[in-house]
Design a protein around this nucleic acid. Structure first.
Lengths: 137, 137
DNA sequence: GTAAGTACGCACAAAAAGGTAAGTGTGAAT
DNA sequence: ATTCACACTTACCTTTTTGTGCGTACTTAC
């Protein structure tokens, strides 16, 4: 694991230049990785589920149809490492672990949900376009 | 704001069932695929770039550091198939092709940009959390 | 007594994503 | 005469992602 001290793509730029949109156009920018975590296949769904309420692991597993245990665990870990998800384990048997959003997690999840909502609401428009293009093909 | 057009993938459900968030929690829902296209590694960056202005293929290739020709072409094709990107080819030599957003593409791109902006602006908070957790590890 | 539920970790395998290098056909610049 | 730019496509190969099945330590339910 490489430590990020200086980003060679941005050193030599002023702060304002760094803050301009376009940081994530440059390779090796850590924002790309964070963005990839939250926009990952299961990351999106986990964030939206947790926006509704705290869930246990198996609850998420059942809710997010199609996710495997492995991927769910992995996704939750990366979101936890980024500080978006809080993992609370109760030392009882059988194990009881709860996942919730941190304040920061809520902020991203709001944005992610806005995007997901748009897609759900406008899905029919997309499907229409896809159908038209199939006809003319 | 509620549209009442029928979606073939959801017909047979009541309207309230359709409007419940959670359509994309179910497997095989086409909204998941569309969402995956726009949140894909390069899809996000393409949409944001095109939000600024129309680009030619090679302009995008240079702007989005790290993308290969193959991936850029593939990403543009899937976004075009979903109706987000408009491809305009001028039959001259050497070839001249311009990529721009459709009205629908602008709408999604706005949401995607809101998310990306959040990540860029709050990146330091994430990096801070990551650093703290590394210390305690 | 046996099965199921809990929240995972691990090893292996398949599938998907992605990168590299080369080729296309033409014209303009060197 | 050679090289470059354009917007790709194709074949081949590597890397990453994802799935599958098994094991855990213990309890409750049947």
């Amino acid at each position: 694991m490489k430590k990020q001290i200086l980003n060679p793509a941005t050193s030599g730029l002023t702060l304002s230049e760094q803050m301009q949109r376009g940081q994530l156009f440059s390779d090796r920018c850590p924002s790309r990785q964070v963005l990839n975590h939250v926009t990952s296949r299961w990351g999106v769904l986990v964030l939206i589920a947790l926006l509704e309420r705290t869930h246990r692991f198996s609850e998420l597993r059942r809710k997010i149809t199609g996710v495997s245990e492995r991927m769910l665990a992995q996704t939750l870990q990366s979101l936890e490492a980024d500080g978006f998800v809080l993992r609370t384990a109760y030392p009882v048997v059988p194990p009881h672990v709860e996942y919730s959003l941190t304040p920061m997690g809520q902020e991203v999840a709001d944005k992610v949900q806005a995007l997901a909502d748009w897609v759900e609401i406008n899905l029919h428009r997309v499907l229409q376009v896809q159908a038209e293009q199939e006809d003319s093909a």
